[in-house]
Design a protein around this nucleic acid. Structure first.
Lengths: 235, 235
DNA sequence: GGGCTGTACCGTACGTTGTACGACTACAGG
DNA sequence: CCTGTAGTCGTACAACGTACGGTACAGCCC
């Protein structure tokens, strides 16, 4: 059945050829741009591709299948540094930052990864075989590699998706924050009633930098330290 | 405008009195039962409450505001063990498992926590002041407490929401798994083509228990060990 | 040429969603 | 009786996912 093979630019002669891959790619760029998965409607996606809404249904059975395709696409393309890791510690860090980077590149699919299940070999290869293989190659024993893998993807997903309950509204994750904004945010905590919120008021300045890159490194480093120590102890 | 005060059982004499709190509670139980936030429609919620759909809009401005209310409700009611922690290590574990339990009790709101921002004092108090206070009370210095807090909520969210990309379909998080199902799941990995998936095939048995409670403990313990060691070193 | 078949595409329509608007009902105070 | 006022809802509309049946054209055969 093969849905359709290469259709080299025949068709109605509209813009670029329509293929499942192109649909997925446009869907990804559209939803990443909107930063909201719900705004990726079938009609809007079709319009972006220059076709009618129903046309997409000859490539995917449902909107849900398109979302699955997006998750597979992202997972399948996860990248790790070209040079292999010289030590378990370095390998763990490579994988951790690999996940984080993947989710930063595609903020909206984080929700998909957290919800969806995939059975595609592409995804399994890119986001499981790859990272676990990297860990094992660096000298982490198999069972430990699996546990590390579980921790790393879990932590990265949580970090990428979570925004600490904070009272100043959404922050754009990409743009750098001005010193002024930072001061304002800390001000929100320090303005809380001190009798009910003694710690938040006291620690307002610390709380400001909660979802930062150093925060991710803090958790990752703490994890790495223990794992490495236990691996060494086992020798 | 205070929306409305106590309205003690006056009204049209229908079932229990309608209050914002009752609406939120029913919404929570409904969406937790369905295990799918999208199925919590305004009409269905209203029907469950025995009122017309539009009635809810005199208590909340929009469906989104109801969702916010659900997140606030859950965050505000986060519970920690009654007895204070005897050591930093115990405090960190208390907070970590506190978050995990909260999300297990309300599986569907995990998505809300990951997405929404709250400015309610209730939520801020239950899910920030409380945990951070517990850490500080156990002897964790303020700045370290904030960093630990960030790690713990992040990790718990990731763990609760993530399901490893795995090819056997959804698993119900609540019901215990039979030995048979376990074997079948491992079989899926071992049936992969070994040339492209050498590690997954080899480690199929380990991969089976990836999203388990021991897995959460693994990450948490590794984190605790390093933090405690560094606190001790600082003395 | 004319006609057939298959592929790509889409117009229309249906049911469901969130929600704006204005109307209805019940009771309180005069 | 009339008149607020507060709580409730019927109806309507736009936007959604998608089933169904149709249209347009390429390549083939005669």
């Amino acid at each position: 059945m093969a849905r359709q093979g290469a259709r080299q630019s025949s068709g109605r002669g509209r813009g670029a050829t329509l293929t499942p891959d192109r649909i997925i790619e446009v869907a990804l760029s559209l939803s990443d741009a909107e930063a909201d998965l719900d705004k990726l409607t079938v009609r809007r996606l079709a319009a972006e591709l220059g076709v009618g809404a129903m046309t997409l249904y000859s490539y995917f059975r449902s909107r849900d299948e398109i979302l699955d395709g997006m998750a597979d696409h992202v997972l399948g393309r996860m990248r790790l540094p070209a040079e292999p890791a010289a030590s378990p510690a370095e390998a763990i860090r490579q994988v951790g930052y690999g996940f984080l980077e993947m989710m930063r590149d595609h903020p909206t699919v984080v929700r998909l990864l957290a919800t969806r299940i995939t059975d595609s070999h592409t995804a399994l290869h890119g986001a499981m075989e790859g990272p676990i293989g990297r860990l094992v190659a660096a000298g982490v024993p198999g069972p430990a590699a699996v546990r590390c893998y579980g921790f790393l993807i879990t932590y990265a997903i949580g970090f990428a998706s979570y925004q600490v309950p904070r009272p100043w509204g959404h922050t754009s994750r990409d743009s750098a924050e001005t010193e002024e904004q930072r001061r304002q945010r800390s001000h929100v905590y320090s303005a809380l009633p001190i009798d009910r919120f003694p710690r938040l008021v006291e620690l307002a300045d610390e709380l400001v930098c909660l979802p930062s890159d150093e925060q991710f490194a803090f958790g990752l480093d703490a994890f790495v330290a223990t794992v490495v120590r236990e691996l060494d102890a086992a020798d």
